[in-house]
Computed example of a mutant assay.
Amino acid sequence: MADVAAMAGVSSQTVSRVVNNRSNVEEETRQRVLSAMRVLGYRPNTAARALVTGQFRTLGLISFGLSSFGNARTVDAVTRAAQRAGYTVNMIAVESQTEQAVHEAFDQLTLQAVDGIVLIEAQILDTPSLRLPPGVPVVMADGDVSHRHPMVDTDQALGARLITRHLLDLGHESVWHVAGPEDSYAARRRAESWHATLKEAGAATPQLLFGDWSAASGYKAGRELARRPGVTAVFAANDQMALGVMRAMIEAGHRVPEDVSIAGFDDLDESAYLSPPLTTVRQDFDVVAEKIVSLMIGQIETGAAPSATAFVAPELVVRQSTGAPPRP
């Protein structure tokens, strides 16, 4: 570190601030230090730094199922946000939502010396008897309705309200909904908001259909809806299921959007290139991740666990898959 400081013409304290990604260093100075580090091949001694600071600059991440688009995007966004803050991420994917599985994941991560743990969509935390091991800062992504831990999520209710209201404003008398799995926080919040929005508008509330986030489950629901008279608008709880609904409707001879409007949720990259392009709700996973990492670092640095719940507003993206209902 002394060699780096001498080459960069700064103090050892300034080198330390750059190594620890502190903000109180001018950018020109930071670049001189980084250049000197590269020339000299300097690598921080993380073990020694941990002994001094009590921090390992590593976050643990537990995801309950990576097959979901939202979970996968959250993992990616949290990893990148942590890296920007100078932290690495160790992740464990847990398929079984049991108390034993959660405790085993915590044990594995704490043995890897993490400073805090992010949990993504952990329905198991609804279990009253479950208590997470003490002493490790925790932040939830999409979950923990009991508010025992800080939580950050997209405002799922707002997103569902935006899409349902959009379809009603186009003139549809009601909106059918293909919901996600019943044990999903996001799916429940979207379905509840869809139902509440219809009731507020004085519209009929059709029977709820359930899928599993897959296009295949949307296709199955779409085939059922295609046989029902009077279905002019369908809101699927994610874009994959909306794709399945759209195919089923087209196969049954329904035009989109002339006969039936179809909307999704998530705004997959491919959604803009469907035929027709899909109306959907865009989630800002990067902002969600930044808030998660910020809450986590705040806990690590202060030792205090905030009882915070933060929601990030989504954006309605209107494309050509929705339009006015057919004339009688």
Rank of each mutant, 00 (worst) to 15 (best):
176 W>Q: 11
167 L>A: 05
169 D>Q: 11
161 R>W: 09
179 A>N: 13
179 A>C: 12
177 H>S: 06
163 I>A: 06
163 I>Y: 02
169 D>S: 13
163 I>L: 10
189 R>S: 14
173 E>K: 05
174 S>A: 06
169 D>P: 03
169 D>E: 15
158 L>C: 14
176 W>V: 04
183 D>C: 15
171 G>I: 12
184 S>P: 11
184 S>I: 15
174 S>H: 14
179 A>T: 06
182 E>L: 10
163 I>D: 00
168 L>M: 10
163 I>R: 00
186 A>N: 12
162 L>F: 08
172 H>L: 12
181 P>M: 08
187 A>F: 07
173 E>V: 06
185 Y>K: 15
189 R>M: 09
173 E>I: 03
172 H>S: 06
186 A>L: 10
160 A>M: 01
178 V>K: 00
159 G>P: 05
176 W>K: 07
166 H>A: 08
182 E>W: 13
165 R>A: 08
189 R>D: 15
185 Y>T: 15
164 T>A: 05
174 S>V: 06
183 D>A: 08
184 S>K: 09
159 G>W: 01
167 L>G: 02
187 A>R: 07
185 Y>S: 11
177 H>L: 10
188 R>W: 08
172 H>E: 06
172 H>F: 05
174 S>E: 10
162 L>T: 02
166 H>C: 13
179 A>Y: 02
183 D>M: 10
186 A>C: 13
